[in-house]
Design a protein around this nucleic acid. Structure first.
Lengths: 238, 238
DNA sequence: TCCCTTATGTGTACATCGTACATTAGGTGA
DNA sequence: TCACCTAATGTACGATGTACACATAAGGGA
């Protein structure tokens, strides 16, 4: 068996590992890669670094993974195992719970929100399960299939967009060893002052001076999410 | 003058070009880089490729741009010049127009939705102007500064999330020279069939079989956006 | 006119990346 | 025991970002 792209990654994974002296396995590879990315960010993921972490030659993981793209997909599916899926709730609470769990997953694994486009689209089994769960929660409410999917994708888009921002900020902070929003703003102060001195952003400046929840990411996330869910309920009359 | 990171990119840009025999300029660099990314995607952006396009030595652009990150910021600001800002509309129509224009900008420049986290956060002048515009539209409605910003960022998150998906799909299609949603689904059919054969995704399967607007990205975008705006109006009583 | 400072672009070089390819080594069934 | 398959190795190549020392040309002061 060569690791060809024609059979899907997931198909290959289901075939029981055929053989002897298994140093490596998709599981071990995924675990090691996720550990690296969690600790040092997505840019620390290198085929060579991964191999080193597994005490194995640089090319060894290629037997299980057709390349770096495949590796990223594998990592995604691996961490989605930890996503708690809601059960026995109404559509609204299901979507809300799913969004909140996804946020938590993405806070545990900041790199999830920074994946290259291909990995973002990856149709992995566990992500399929998430979609299924969300669609099932919306089933039987009188919505057509297109609307159901659109609602799910709308919420998903909000979550990904919000977390893309939130985890970019948090990545920037840990990169520069900043530990509070104030420290971050201190770092950005010269640039910000320069912008403000142009006088072109009075409303923004007012925000900077009077806002009191600048660092309450959770509150900000909830507000947007609740607005979106309110709007879905109202507009679709469900 | 060395291109040091301590003075901000934007600060440096405002100083009039000091000198002689200007082959290069931030303008020319940005234009060339954007042309490459528009035509061949973000991964085609290479300092060497950029230099070649400008008929200049590989290291030449470094005089104007401190590195690739800086280049990306420059590109972002450059294309945001084309974003049409709404004027004289109510808060809702302003946010809606801003979202729609941003979508169009991101369709014209698919790479905008695929930027690395640092460039995504870039506080460029023209992006500051967008934020200012949105906040101004929400001013005077009785909202506190935190809520105003959160509403803006919520809409922004939705737009970025939705376009991140939409442009990842479109990037994938152009990468594989597919020109319709049907062709794309044809390409994905083996994988999808494999997933469906597990029987774990009945609702998803029902969607695949009965949906009629799978490729109407504009309709999907509008639905989510309108839900979000509805919810904002209702929840904040504005 | 000449030269000298300074902004501008060049050339070379290096570490690091993804991965192609040919090769070895270890375990199994006959 | 031996042939065979497969897991893992080793070597190598082209591409990337960018550091650093250098060449060069314009324009002003003598």
């Amino acid at each position: 068996m060569s690791t060809d792209k024609s059979t899907s990654l997931w198909e290959r994974l289901e075939r029981p590992a055929p053989a002897p002296r298994q140093l490596l396995s998709p599981q071990r590879i995924a675990t090691a890669a996720v550990a690296i990315a969690d600790a040092e960010g997505l840019e620390a993921i290198t085929m060579r670094r991964l191999a080193a972490e597994l005490s194995v030659a640089p090319m060894a993981p290629y037997r299980y993974v057709s390349g770096k793209d495949d590796l990223l997909e594998l990592m995604v599916d691996h961490v989605y195992a930890d996503l708690r899926l809601p059960d026995g709730l109404g559509w609204r609470e299901s979507l809300r719970a799913l969004a909140m769990s996804t946020r938590e997953l993405m806070l545990d694994h900041r790199w999830l929100a920074q994946l290259p486009p291909q990995a973002k689209l990856a149709l992995t089994p566990r992500r399929m399960a998430v979609a299924e769960k969300a669609l099932a929660a919306l089933d039987g409410l009188g919505l057509d299939a297109d609307t159901m999917m659109s609602v799910f994708r709308g919420v998903d888009a909000y979550v990904h967009g919000a977390m893309s921002y939130e985890s970019a900020v948090s990545a920037l902070m840990s990169e520069q060893s900043l530990s509070s929003g104030d420290e971050l703003r201190g770092e950005l102060a010269p640039l910000m002052t320069w912008h403000m001195r142009t006088g072109r952003y009075p409303t923004f400046q007012h925000y900077l001076r009077t806002a009191t929840r600048k660092d309450d990411a959770r509150w900000q996330f909830d507000l947007g999410l609740d607005c979106l869910l309110d709007g879905i309920a109202a507009r679709l009359d469900i």
